[in-house]
């Protein structure tokens, strides 16, 4: 990446971009396509992170540094944004993302019990990933599917009107087949 902007070079030399770029094995060449068409300015930080996360599944540190360079934005700003928003993840995540809605309707409908059952079954706490990188368990403030409460989403598919037993049945389908099951429980 040729650097014409003198400011950009200074950030780079000044440290973070260059110094803090660990070799975390991320293939930075993938980033070029991902950032295609984004204006090189601060406004693009959030869309750039969103696209990068699509590509890598999470945001490796080297990718953050590269985005800072590409968009000519200080590395600290990029890091600050990546840690502010719940959507961004700085650690690798599992193959299946299990999202438990904790909205009001789901709470009143027993979301805590469902989360507890999932934590027990998967052996991880909310926010963690199983060691085999199969499942990541997360919660979300509200999915806006309140009429189906309580709701979980696994790999983008919604499962509603759940209780503990039905929830575990959903997880079993993903554990056994590894693929998104076609039928609803």
């Amino acid at each position: 990446m040729p650097m014409k902007d003198p400011l950009a070079r200074r950030w780079r030399k000044g440290g973070p971009g260059e110094l803090r770029r660990p070799d975390d094995g991320a293939d930075l060449s993938l980033l070029e396509d991902a950032l295609q068409g984004l204006p090189r300015n601060e406004m693009s930080v959030i869309p750039a992170l969103q696209r990068a996360q699509e590509v890598y599944g999470y945001l490796p540190e080297s990718v953050l540094a590269q985005i800072a360079d590409e968009l000519r934005v200080p590395w600290a700003r990029v890091y600050g944004v990546a840690t502010f928003y719940a959507q961004f993840h700085l650690k690798p995540r599992g193959r299946h993302i299990v999202l438990v809605c904790r909205g009001t309707a789901c709470h009143v409908g027993g979301a805590s019990e469902i989360l507890g059952a999932l934590e027990e079954r998967l052996g991880i706490r909310e926010g963690e990933t199983t060691p085999d990188l199969m499942f990541t368990l997360e919660t979300v403030a509200c999915l806006g599917a309140c009429a189906l409460a309580p709701v979980i989403v696994v790999g983008g598919r919604y499962y509603g009107h759940l209780d503990e037993a039905k929830t575990l049945a959903v997880i079993d389908m993903y554990t056994d087949g590894n693929a998104a099951p076609e039928v609803q429980p």
Binding site: I46, V81, F84
Partner: peptide, 23 residues
């Protein structure tokens, strides 16, 4: 696209977020 922060519904935070910063 919002990136998951309730406070970004607040108008000044939302504006900051569109500008690409912490909301």
């Amino acid at each position: 696209e919002g990136a998951g922060a309730f406070v970004c519904g607040e108008e000044t935070a939302l504006i900051t977020s569109i500008e690409g910063r912490r909301g």
